[in-house]
Write a protein that binds this DNA or RNA. Structure first.
Length: 789
DNA sequence: CAGTGAGCGAGCTTCCGCTTGACTT
């Protein structure tokens, strides 16, 4: 039996620390928080000064009893949870729940998992910081009050099972607000002028120089006038300016920056990044992945230096300490870095390899020298005009950290890469090959993706490293926002070109504004957001979290009692909750679009029981209203009267075939043709409003042809085995279970025996389920009930 | 797998932050 019990939050951490401390120390993990407010009801005693009702969570019962047992046997219990608000609370909950004694309990903290740091911590124990614990209790109770009082309002006024909270509701607001900005955005056009100049260099060779006019023209007439002056103008170099410049590396990764870079460079979703990082962490390959700190341990700095020297040389080393600038950062851990800097690559899945490599490069680069550049600008005069062209180029004099890593940006890639410029002299005369004035449009604000939303949240101090990924999932699970693509829109632009003394004027077409995997607000998200912002502007304010954080800081500093702080909030908040519950209307987000010209009745859109719908007439009128669902890509907010009217043109009869009527309509799975009792999906290329009788018959016959070819052969006495052509290629089916056919086997040549072999080799799905179900039943009774069905 | 849209009204849903597994097509 060990004399000392050390309790940390994470089991992987426990394993590492145990190695440092030797056999007198047993290290166990609490797996995070061990208890929380009661799940049933609100879990706060409002009659008794907001007394929190704590309960050991169901999944922590086992952990707690194990810890209790070990703590009884130990002489000293060392509470080594993280040094932040949550960590302090974990230590306190452990102290309370394990019924520890003050004399035999020590609170210790360390920011990095190194032997020195841990030994140092053991030598410098302290007491539990009660004020910091109280700040956490205030945070916890506030979040419970906000979440559990707002959500029921939504159940009543909008739809059951919805949710609201300090973090998620503001995250949704960011997306709704951005969507409105985009909808209201009016692109501004201007003319950008580019020229290609030529000259002869010292060796008599012709060289080219591309330059852009420093000013843009707002209107076509001005651009044309400028090109006119260029017709007979002289072009000469006015000045050449060369300036040194430098680029510095980005700091090492935090959770948020790792999520952003993995999204940009590897295309990972936020959740995927965290899963892969978790595996690397558990394998001991990287430090903890949920952190807001950019700090590196001295050990890591030293190891980085060694690596950089052996890889690139001493002059590439530049050891830096980065400062954290993010709001509310609590810095309980190090930045995310490789555990061993001399491990350049790891074994594992492709994803693990790629993420590790990213982390390694980012860490190493952060300790490397600045890149030194030389920026050159050549200014070119145009006789008869005060405007100047400028050509700019950039040369890397010393690559520094760029040798290993370059941070990506969200901005569209600037297509004109700056590069080396030809050698030229002041006053040199230039000839033009062509000058082009091209109409350009200002860009609308980009929609948020998962990672860029996380970045914005971090900037506002909303959410924590451990909650970014879950919050992003929650707002999608509640259908407040959806991840989706928007195709590019065709846009015309004007090009004026001056070449060999002649100006041509053309209209060209471009595709602009395509977006992939971005977050779009749904109608329900918009309705919920508008409702909450109207009635609870304080909570929905982007600064609400930052404001309450200040309050929590005061509590942590001992300046104010946590119950007093909560009381002040609750006394203002709760009456609004009651009032809203009683006096607000049911929220359907109705918009009246205008009058249906054929019936003269009102046309409106709103949220219905099964989603957004358009409605002709009102329920007060004698004649019943007509209804039509909105299409998936339409929204209450942006649909126009004409678009809504079109919805009522379906279902549409499109003639007869084999004596039966064909109708075209749009269902849950998109546009389809209905003929007799069968349904035929319309290919994407066919517009349901345009489909002709002939085309419909063609589609029906095509589908029948495919159906006919579906069965390759049947086997067995009662034809119980069918070899079929499916969406993913040939397969065979028996007893409603599908089986794969190995590559290289001709499906038409399959024999009954071979099929039976394959069936034996691929165990039946039902049997598998049963086995899992029984195993699960021991731990979770619910899983058993599920698998029986 | 493709038509809905009013309604008896039971009993359910929900927050944010710490941490890992357990389950599965």
């Amino acid at each position: 039996m060990s004399k000392n019990l050390v309790i940390v939050e994470s089991p992987a951490k426990a394993k590492t620390i145990e190695k440092f401390l030797g056999k007198d120390y047993q290290v166990m993990s609490s797996f995070g928080h061990i208890r929380d407010l009661a799940e049933k009801g609100i879990g706060i005693d409002f009659e008794n000064n907001y007394q929190p009702q704590y309960v050991v969570s169901a999944d922590k019962k086992k952990t707690v009893s194990e810890l209790k047992k070990a703590s009884k046997d130990a002489e000293i219990v060392w509470l080594a949870s993280d040094e932040d608000r949550e960590g302090e609370a974990i230590a306190w909950h452990l102290y309370e729940e394990l019924k520890l004694k003050k004399d035999s309990t020590r609170r210790i903290v360390f920011h990095e998992i190194t032997k020195d740091a841990i030994l140092h911590a053991i030598e410098n124990p302290r007491d539990i910081d009660v004020n910091l614990v109280d700040a956490q209790q205030a945070r916890r109770v506030l979040d419970r009050i906000v979440g559990f009082e707002l959500s029921p309002i939504l159940w009543r006024k909008v739809r059951p099972s919805l949710s609201a909270g300090r973090v998620q509701s503001v995250a949704v607001r960011l997306i709704v607000d951005r969507e409105r900005e985009i909808n209201q955005f009016v692109p501004e056009a201007s003319y950008r002028v580019n020229a290609v100049f030529s000259s002869v260099d010292a060796n008599g060779k012709t060289v080219e120089l591309k330059a852009e006019l420093q000013q843009r023209f707002a209107i076509k007439v001005e651009a044309l006038a400028f090109l006119e002056t260029c017709k007979n103008a002289q072009f000469s170099i006015d000045d050449i300016i060369t300036k040194p410049a430098k680029k510095s590396p980005a700091p090492p990764f935090t959770t948020s920056t790792l999520q952003q870079e993995a999204a940009r460079k590897l295309g990972f979703s936020v959740a995927q990044t965290m899963q892969v990082a978790q595996r690397l962490y558990e394998a001991g390959k990287i430090t903890y992945m949920r952190t807001d700190s950019v700090n590196l341990s001295n050990l890591a700095l030293g190891a980085s230096k060694v690596e950089i020297i052996s890889m690139a040389g001493q002059k590439y080393v530049h050891i830096r300490k980065f400062n954290n600038k993010t709001k509310g950062a609590q810095e309980a851990h190090e930045a995310i870095r490789p555990s061993y800097m001399n491990t350049h690559t790891v074994e594992g899945t492709v994803q693990e390899k790629r993420l590790y490599e990213l982390i390694w490069k980012r860490t190493i680069a952060s300790q490397m020298a600045d890149a030194e550049l030389e920026k050159t600008s050549i200014y070119i005069n145009v006789s008869g005009s005060q405007h100047q062209f400028v050509a700019s180029g950039e040369v890397i004099v010393f690559d520094g950290f760029l040798k290993v890593y370059m941070e990506s940006t969200d901005d569209e890639v600037d297509s004109e890469k700056e590069s080396l410029l030809p050698a030229m002299k002041n006053g040199e005369k230039l000839l033009t090959t062509e000058i082009v004035a091209q109409e350009r449009f200002s860009q609308k604000p980009p929609r948020y993706g998962e990672a860029s939303l996380v970045r914005k949240m971090e900037e506002l101090g909303i959410g924590r490293p451990s909650t970014y990924a879950p919050t992003i999932s929650t707002i999608q699970n509640r259908s407040y926002v959806e991840k989706g693509d928007r195709p590019a829109e065709k846009r015309e632009y004007n090009v004026l070109k001056l070449k060999v003394g002649k100006i041509t004027d053309k209209i060209k077409e471009e595709n602009a504004g395509a977006e992939k995997s971005k977050l779009f607000p749904t109608d329900i998200g918009t309705v919920v957001n508008d409702f909450l912002t109207e009635y609870f502007p304080t909570i929905l304010n982007y600064n609400f979290t930052a404001d309450v954080e200040k309050e929590f800081d005061s509590i942590a500093d001992g300046k104010i009692k946590w119950t007093k702080s909560i009381d002040k909030f609750y006394k203002k908040f709760h009456p609004i909750v009651e009032d809203t519950m009683k006096n607000s209307e049911r929220q359907v987000g109705e918009r009246i679009l205008g009058i249906d010209p054929t019936s003269g009745r009102q046309l409106s859109v709103k949220l219905g029981k099964y989603g957004p719908l358009a409605q002709i007439g009102t329920s007060e009128e004698e004649e019943k209203p007509l209804f039509a669902s909105l299409r998936k890509e339409q929204s209450i907010e942006s649909i126009t009267l004409d678009e809504a009217l079109d919805l009522f043109k379906l279902p549409r009869q499109i003639g007869e075939f084999e004596g039966k009527v064909m109708t075209v309509a749009i269902g849950r799975f998109g546009p389809y043709i209905r003929h007799d009792v069968s349904f035929y999906s319309l290919p994407k290329t066919d517009d349901p409003m345009e489909v002709t009788t002939e085309r419909a018959i063609e589609i029906i016959e095509e589908k029948r042809e495919v159906e006919k070819n579906r069965i390759i052969q049947t086997l067995g006495e009662n034809a119980e085995i069918q070899v079929l052509n499916g969406r993913f290629g040939p397969y065979f089916t028996c007893d409603k279970v599908n089986y794969k056919i190995p590559k290289g086997t001709d499906p038409a040549m399959l024999t009954l025996e071979r099929c039976q072999e394959l069936m034996a080799a691929q165990p039946e799905a039902g049997a598998k389920k049963k086995a899992f179900g029984r195993k699960a039943a021991v731990i979770k009774p619910k899983a058993k009930a599920k698998s029986k069905k």
